[in-house]
Every structure is written in structure tokens, then in C-alpha cells.
Design a protein around this nucleic acid. Structure first.
Lengths: 196, 196
DNA sequence: TATAAAAACGATCATACGTTCGTATTCTGG
DNA sequence: CCAGAATACGAACGTATGATCGTTTTTATA
């Protein structure tokens, strides 16, 4: 046999990305072989190479897509919101929502950084730093306007991000806590920690 | 050649554990081959099997040792401290200190859980839960005594732990922030978030 | 000091890996 | 409707992997 009826490049690549996210999330990049991946998509291993350059490039594309989307989304979400407190609240709600909805991407984007070769890793780290800066900016503005009392802005930003991102490892959308409650709890925790 | 002069089981196993922590921390469990490991220790690959059962068992031992030590240490540290606020402060300081000093173990203990087979993972998760319970207990006591105002104890505990554990990924002991400052910042963040 | 246990070597096993390639089939633009 | 591009197959490549084994040398015990 050879080319399958109905096959289309775009659809297959999307399926590869989807299966890649699933498998890497479950087992880790190193533990996922291209044979696993191909089987999940319904292809022979060699056929993957009609759509990806290398396994490494696949990982980079997955993480890069995620980071770009994350940045665009946060900017869209914060756009038009002026006051630091409102911006902080919006940031928290956005971050939690996004991280709930894209568990796989977020997890891979942080835990598989070390599987990227240095050049690729550098690009991703730059994007991540840009995202962190969004929060730092909010904290800085709030401090300048004497709304927040913060000992050290970068450290506090890291701490807050770690706290908010942590939900990825335990939050179950079907569990006891609904999304709104989750956001409320975290908003209160962060605000109390930060407000003057 | 065969048995090397001066070789001793205890020392070699310790060297294997040490090299294992280093390599797994740097590259991830799946990416570390027994050949890498053996080379780092200065052995032939086959010789590892005089000291470990399997690669999987090595990982389990590393994580298990870490979790047991963590639990013993936290209990020793909190022993004798009565009041919830003091206990919470002690917990925060302990957790941060321990996580700074044992970056590798902590990182491996959370990021390589998925590389454990189900039986081993279950044991580790139970130990981790026991550790989380230490914090939950503190929060509960504090809430009962009307010292803390907490919306949801488990969620808050996870959030706090995520925040405190996050330092592993960025804190550099030789960097701008010294340990005491780090502890102060985090203590303030947590306490404000939790106090009535 | 004799002897068994411990520890290391080096060769080797079967398997799995990422990737390449020639070929066959299907899709698509002119 | 036909030609060339796109897509997939299936076999194969060289390499790396976790693990085993027989052998040899060192250490420790009695």
C-alpha cells in the first residue's frame, strides 16, 4: 500500500501534534518513541517525516506554539484594563483558566525544556521571560501607585507564578472544586499577600 | 582486569546514587543510560548490577530515600513547636531550606514520578501525601483557633506548597537573594494570604 | 592463612531507537 | 484530464539501550 485515501497534510500534522501533546504529557518526551507516536496517529513511523523535520523539531514546535499563544492571549486579556488591581485580578483569572484548559501544553512547556537543544531552549526561555514580565509590570505599577506592598518584585512574581501554575499538577476539572471557586481562592491568597 | 583494588560496596553504591542524582537532575531519568551512569562512576555498565537491581529500582531508591528523609526532617523540625503560627513559620523556613539544599532530590522526586512503575509510584505518592498533611494540619489547627482565615484548606495547602517548591526551578544560592531574604519574602507572602 | 563472598571486567544478547529511502498511490492545480 | 506534488508504506540502516553471564581479582571472615 501507499498513500491512504483521504489523507491530507494539514489534518495529519494536526493529529501528530495532538497525539504528541497527549503522549509527551503522559510519558515524557524521551520516553515517547516515534513508533508510539506513529501508532497513535495511525501511521507508519517513516511517514511522520512527511510532516516533521525531526523529533526535536516536533517538540520545539509544540512548545513554541504554546508560548506564542500564551503571550498573545494574556495581552488580549489584559488589553484595556488600566488599574493595577484589576489587571492583577485579570491576570490571575486568565492564568488559571489557561492553565486548566491547556494542562498538557503548559506541563510540557516547563518540564521538557531540558529536552530542547540549547538553541531552541533559548528561544523558549525568552518567551517565558516575556510572560513573567507581564506580571512583574503589574506588580511594579501597583507598587508605584502605593496599592501594593511588595518586598521584592521578581521574587514575588516567581512565587505567585509558581503558586498559580501548580494547579496543573493536581487540579481535576471534574473534581470537588469548580473553576470559579479555584480562581476565588487563589485570587484571595495572592491579593492578601500583595496588598498594602 | 577484574575487581579493582580499593573497591568497596558501600562507597560504590553511594557514588552511583550521587552520580544518579546529578545525571537524572540534568537530563531526566529516561535520557540517562546506564552507560552514562557507569562512565560517571568509573565502572563498566555491567558492574552496576553488583549494586542495583534494575534501573527502575535505582530511581525508586533515590526518590524513596528522599521522601523518607523529608518526612523525618520536617517532623524533627516541627517537634515541640505548639502554636499554629509558629508552626507555620517553621514549616515555611524548613521547606525552603530543605528545597534549596536538595534541589536535585526534590526535582527528581516530583518530575520523575511518572517514570516509576505504578506500584512504586503508589508508595511515593503516599509519602508525599503524608508530607502535604503536615501543612494541612497546621492550617486546620490555625483555622480552628481563629488565627487563620482560609477558604479551602487542601487547595490552600497545595497552593502554598507549589509556591514554596517553585524556588527549586529558579533559585540560585549564589545569586542576588540570600537565603534569609528568600525565607522572609515567602513567609510574608504566605502569612498575609492566610492570616485573619 | 585458607576460603567464600564481593566487586569488577568485557563480551554479548535481544530489542528499540531515530531516521532514510525507494516505491506506490492519491490528490490537486493548470 | 493529466502531470507533478503530496502522502503513505514497508524495509532497512547504524546505533544505543537495559540486562545477563562467565571469569578474574580483591576483600573480608573464621
Amino acid at each position: 500500500m501507499s498513500r491512504t485515501a483521504g489523507s491530507s497534510g494539514k489534518k495529519t500534522l494536526a493529529a501528530i501534534h495532538e497525539a504528541g501533546l497527549d503522549l509527551i504529557h503522559e510519558r515524557g518526551f524521551e520516553a515517547v518513541s516515534l513508533r508510539h507516536l506513529a501508532a497513535r496517529v495511525g501511521l507508519q513511523p517513516g511517514s511522520l517525516y512527511n510532516h516533521i523535520e525531526t523529533k526535536q523539531d516536533l517538540l520545539f514546535d509544540l512548545i513554541h506554539n504554546h508560548m506564542v499563544t500564551l503571550l498573545q492571549s494574556v495581552d488580549a486579556e489584559l488589553d484595556g484594563i488600566e488599574y493595577p488591581l484589576a489587571r492583577l485580578k485579570a491576570f490571575i483569572a486568565f492564568h488559571l483558566t489557561y492553565h486548566i484548559e491547556r494542562k498538557r501544553e503548559v506541563f510540557i512547556g516547563s518540564s521538557e525544556l531540558r529536552s530542547l537543544d540549547p538553541k531552541n531552549r533559548k528561544k523558549i526561555v525568552a518567551l517565558r521571560r516575556a510572560y513573567e514580565e507581564r506580571l512583574c509590570d503589574i506588580l511594579k505599577r501597583g507598587t508605584e501607585k502605593r496599592l501594593f506592598k511588595i518586598d521584592d518584585i521578581p521574587v514575588s512574581a516567581y512565587a505567585i507564578l509558581a503558586m498559580l501554575t501548580g494547579i496543573c499538577t493536581w487540579y481535576d476539572a471534574k473534581g470537588r472544586i469548580d473553576r470559579k471557586t479555584l480562581i476565588d481562592i487563589h485570587t484571595r491568597l495572592v491579593l492578601q499577600g500583595v496588598l498594602k
